[in-house]
Design a protein around this nucleic acid. Structure first.
Ligand SMILES: [Mn+2]
Ligand SMILES: [Mn+2]
Ligand SMILES: [Mn+2]
Ligand SMILES: [Mn+2]
Lengths: 217, 217
DNA sequence: TAAAATATTTAGACTAATCTAAAAATTACA
DNA sequence: TGTAATTTTTAGATTAGTCTAAATATTTTA
């Protein structure tokens, strides 16, 4: 059995692995988990002896398939609990992450599979992230960043890159939600801001906001 | 904030307090929590400095009102999660205790109050134990042990004293469930066994089984 | 390509929760 | 009521996860 802490390390490594081909560095993990590099080194040694990561001193780490499987299962738990909190317990999408961070570590196949069924096998969490199935398979949406769209193009809002409270609250305030069909009305060349239309309203998004929004392609 | 471990100690002390007027002894707690008396002593000192228990060396402990409040909140969490698992996720009543033992330690007022509402404010868990409300108030059922009933008396089966897997499975096998109306047909004076009728069937219960069953009075 | 800057690891220490073994206090009962 | 049995506490270790400070390796850059 793996501790909460070990699972959090594996999850962090998994997420960084998605965006690098090289190993994930000690410092990267330390920053993400709000801990010190020396603590990370200690944990990496431990995870390596458990065959959950490939660790070569000074050169960062990758997950073994055993490690990846655990990371995916924790992510599955996290995202299913987020769906539960939003859909059944009336939480807002910007309130669920920290609770899911605790619930994800409760280890019971039956619990999570029954929860999955109870929720009707959702494919994405409230922020648009895909939910791995019970075999760890993730169905990746094909999506592109909104900033790559041109005037008059449109698509479904499917994912937020930055899912911090602040950003999610901004979206909620403007009733801009995942699943909404968005049309680009015009792009201001001066500051790359986007004027969009959705659900009978219009809104101007700064470039940095547009870059946090992904559209199904 | 209190650790899982501290909460488990408080809960254990609370439960023993219900059946003794004296302080709860070190050994009693050690047995319940599968640990050693010396470990218990250490923890009692710690809980005492946090003002959660009244501790006088060699004379056992009682909860302070602060400690009792925490114990009741953990118990509330435990029992509400058990209801959730049975009613929403199709668990059997003999499968939920260990999972609830983990879920009970997730500390969020909003989570538990919303769960309570989602479950329609249940008053009892799947084993008949009362669920404290959000202020820690427990509505105690007035109930008596089945062995105190006489022939031809009847009532509703509301609580099991022994909620071990073994006993719960025995009851399930005989379709004898909480909420069932039970009538005592006769009591065999030789071995104090009970012949009962419920839900169109009859069953003979040994004295020790009868003693584990409580009936609403 | 050799400093300088940066990243990583090692060494040694700390805390929470646990343990075993031994000492001390309480309680049981002859 | 004094000794034996039992219970509880103390003393000293251990383990997981963390930290700071120092040492070492890698990377950058002049
Ligand atoms: Mn999340
Ligand atoms: Mn977590
Ligand atoms: Mn239980
Ligand atoms: Mn517990």
């Amino acid at each position: 059995m793996n501790s909460f802490t070990e699972e959090n390390y594996l999850k962090a490594i998994y997420k960084f692995s998605l965006t690098t081909k090289k190993g994930v560095s000690t410092n990267t993990i330390a920053k993400k988990l709000n801990t010190k590099a020396s603590s990370v080194t200690d944990m990496l040694k431990k995870l390596a002896t458990k065959n959950l990561i490939n660790y070569k001193k000074y050169y960062g780490v990758t997950l073994t398939s055993k490690g990846e499987q655990i990371a995916l299962s924790v992510i599955r738990n996290h995202r299913l609990w987020e769906v539960f909190l939003v859909e059944k317990l009336n939480f807002k999408w910007d309130e669920v992450h920290d609770l899911a961070e605790e619930l994800e570590h409760i280890k019971s196949e039956k619990l999570i599979n029954n929860l999955d069924a109870f929720l009707n096998f959702p494919t994405n969490d409230p922020h648009g992230d895909p939910i791995p199935n019970k075999n760890g398979k993730i169905k990746n949406l094909k999506m592109i960043n909104m900033s790559e769209l041109k005037a008059n193009e449109e698509g479904i809002f499917v994912y937020v890159k930055d899912s911090s409270d602040k950003f999610l609250k901004y979206l909620s305030k403007n009733k801009l939600e995942i699943g909404e069909r968005i049309k680009i009305l015009e792009i201001e060349p001066f500051d790359n801001s986007f004027k969009i239309a959705y659900n009978n309203q219009q809104l101007i998004l700064s470039e940095s906001i547009a870059k946090n929004i992904y559209i199904q392609s």
